[in-house]
Design a protein around this nucleic acid. Sequence first.
RNA 1: GGCCCCGUAGCUCAGUUGGAUAGAGCACCAGAUUCCUAAUCUGGGGGUCACAGGUUCGAAUCCUGUCGGGGUCACCA
Length: 604
Amino acid sequence: MTPHRICDSRGQQFSGVSMDVFIGFHGHVLAAVQQLKRDGVVPQDASVDGISLTAPKDPTHGDLATNAAMVLAKPAKMAPRKLAERIVPLIASDPGIEKVEIAGPGFINLTLARAFWPSVLRMVLEQGDAYGRSAIGKGQAVNIEYVSANPTGPMHVGHCRGAVFGDALANLLAFAGYDVSREYYVNDAGAQVDVLARSAFLRYREALGEDIGDIPEGLYPGDYLKPVGEQLAANHKSSLLELTEEQWLPMVRATALKAMLGMIEEDLARLDIRHDVFFSELSLTEGGQDQVADTIAELRAKGLIYEGSLPPPKGKIDEEWEDREQLLFRATEFGDDQDRALVKSDGSYTYFASDIAYHRDKFRRSFKSMIDVWGADHSGHIKRMKSALAALTDNEADLDVKVCQLVRLFRSGEPVKMSKRAGTFVTLRDVVEEVGAGPVRFMMLYRKNDAPLDFDFAKVTEQSRDNPVFYVQYAHARACSVLKNVAERLPDLNLEGDKLAQADLDLLKDDAEIALIRRIAQFPRIVEGAAQAHEPHRLGFYLYDLSGDFHGLWNRGKDLPQLRFIYENDRELTRARIALVDVTKRVVALGLGILGVHAMHELH
RNA sequence: GGCCCCGUAGCUCAGUUGGAUAGAGCACCAGAUUCCUAAUCUGGGGGUCACAGGUUCGAAUCCUGUCGGGGUCACCA
């Protein structure tokens, strides 16, 4: 593929397929391999799956490198470098490729024609906000379940990371061409919501004028239940007092649940998080049906359910532990270290039992691909959940459980102490109000999900290079600033819309300029890689690097005025550089958009 | 004791799913520095990728074992 074909193809070549600017060259390498197969140099059945085409870290290795010769050396029974010599002439003829070299153990390094890089810019300008979008998802439906915090109170910081992670991952997958459904599993069936109801009932009595004293041990003490009590008092006057707990509890519970969910939705909205579906656990067993029982029956039919007793828990001695026969799922058949209980001693279903039914329901809603975002304390449950789902769906469903490790809060290096009992835990709302949604989101994503994360209130608002939030936002703001300045200083320079794409981009020759373009060209690959690995943090690190290249280029203009973006002595060159600035700005904004962070036009 | 995660520069962490001489930021050292509204900038030193085996053309990455740190371990959610 030549550079010209790349920039001339408007809808066709890039609609529906990867916008990776290197994809054409990859095809080229594969075509060369096909030729060698026809020539009998490489056996027909040799796999080409391992052949990659990547941008090497070291620029002296060219723009692109392929391992094709090394991968095929064994099936072809040839030394890698010998085989490389056969491949080289087959790709060297492409006019888009300036130089082909064999290096190291058998890498084939391609140096692209200098004119290729400006063509990348032109393409990005034409693609606009579609740049980097991918079709690898093929419209496949993906269900991503995240947050799912118990509806018994406001969200605290602990929920924050999973919430942001799940939301950004959902954005990312949507950007990569998946059909994403965002789901919240509402645990409205367990004992904790009865506790919620009793706590609300106490507040109801308080609202009626009764002195309730201290909140008893075992009930939720938070003030956030006072409005619920007042609402109950307004709706029912004192009538609930006449009823038995059995009678009032369902009513009070429903009112309290609705209030709690409303509060949680508000908290999430502060972080720009909105779910498509709130799935009620209670709904699994309501309305004359019992999906949990159905689920257990299905598993029983597969011979995976039995009555038995479990060995006592190891590690700590639990006084209340009693040996009893219970209904168990054969998780050990799937590599779990124990079979798992489905029914509690009081006869109700365990959380696990409901959760299986819930995942079965997702599958029945035709989601074959599911992602769950869990806190680290639930990691021990992954195996049993996967086991149960595999059993129920005959391995047709794919479940990826992403575990978010703990967030440790700091204030200028000092750990923030939190105690639920003392009521000193930091809520999600506190954090967002103090530092803003954007910084919270970015910091929560600037780490691998399975590594612990330190969150320092002072750090996220610091204006320096070691605060990535600021550094990336600053790149965007700086680009905006340059665009604004050029419009003022050179008002007759036509920079509107697609005029920018007509700038003579070949004038961009400086190494720092090319380096920035190379980074921009990586964007679609980063998106695809992050989407496939379910790792949004890669995007955050990419944006930091991209911002570094951009700031670096700006800094060079300090010493060398001829390298400044706005160079009044050369209007055409300025136009070309403005195109580069504009594209950089767009890519930063696109990347931030996927992370769910609003790109700022000015910083103060 | 079982299972899961982690172990990379003095510190905090990346590492394109197995690629070439392992990279950033902070800190440290040496220079430069009043600016296209904006974080000062440039360069430098610093590593047995916890350890030992294995897999192969090639391992920080995959497998096994050891050591160290964290989480979790009937019924709760």
